[in-house]
Computed example of a mutant assay.
Amino acid sequence: MPYPGRPVLEPLPQFRGTATVRQTPEQRAALLEFVARGHQTGRSLRELAELTDRTQTAIRRALDEAGVQRRGRGAPAASAARSVR
């Protein structure tokens, strides 16, 4: 029996159709704020990309532009996960 896939998130209404080269400054500011806040609360690049209707690369660039330090790849180490509990 195969492992069930992860559900794909639908883009949020405020970000539908805004993934263009010519974003307004307000759209860009809203994206940067949402991505920075989402990343800091633990959302993955993939989740943020799906919610904003963008690619993971666009999300990485937005985090860099917002000055947010990205987390390392993968889940936290088992010892780190135990200390959080």
Rank of each mutant, 00 (worst) to 15 (best):
F34D: 05
G42Q: 08
V35Y: 00
F34P: 03
R22W: 11
A36E: 11
T20H: 04
Y3L: 14
G72N: 07
A19Q: 01
P25I: 06
R60F: 02
T57M: 09
G17C: 06
R61S: 03
G72K: 13
V68W: 11
R28F: 03
E33A: 13
V35W: 01
R85G: 10
I59F: 01
R70H: 02
E50R: 07
S79T: 10
R85H: 06
F15P: 04
T24G: 02
R82A: 14
A36S: 13
G17N: 06
P76H: 07
P13N: 14
I59T: 07
F15L: 11
V84C: 02
P25D: 15
T55K: 05
L9G: 00
Q56T: 14
R73E: 12
T41M: 09
E33M: 10
T24Q: 09
Q56G: 10
A66H: 05
P11H: 09
R43H: 10
E10K: 13
A19M: 02
A30C: 04
P11I: 15
Q56E: 15
R16S: 08
D64C: 00
R61G: 01
H39W: 13
Y3G: 01
E33Q: 14
L31A: 05
L12V: 04
G67L: 11
V35L: 03
G74A: 06
E10W: 01
T41W: 03
T18N: 10
V84T: 11
F15E: 08
R6I: 08
T41A: 12
L63N: 07
S83R: 14
G67I: 11
A30L: 14
V68G: 04
R22N: 12
D53K: 03
P4F: 05
L32Q: 12
I59G: 01
Y3M: 10
L45N: 06
P76W: 05
A81T: 12
L32H: 10
S44T: 15
P13M: 08
R22D: 14
R43V: 00
A62M: 02
H39C: 03
E26L: 09
R43A: 07
V84W: 12
P13L: 14
A36G: 04
T41C: 07
G17M: 04
G72L: 13
A49T: 08
A19H: 06
A36R: 15
R6Y: 00
T57I: 09
E50T: 01
V68I: 15
E65G: 03
Q27G: 00
Q27V: 06
L63M: 12
P4R: 06
G42T: 12
T55C: 03
A78W: 13
T55W: 01
G38T: 13
G67A: 09
R16T: 12
A80K: 12
V21Q: 09
E65C: 05
G67E: 12
P76F: 00
S79H: 10
S83Y: 04
A49M: 11
L51I: 04
P13D: 15
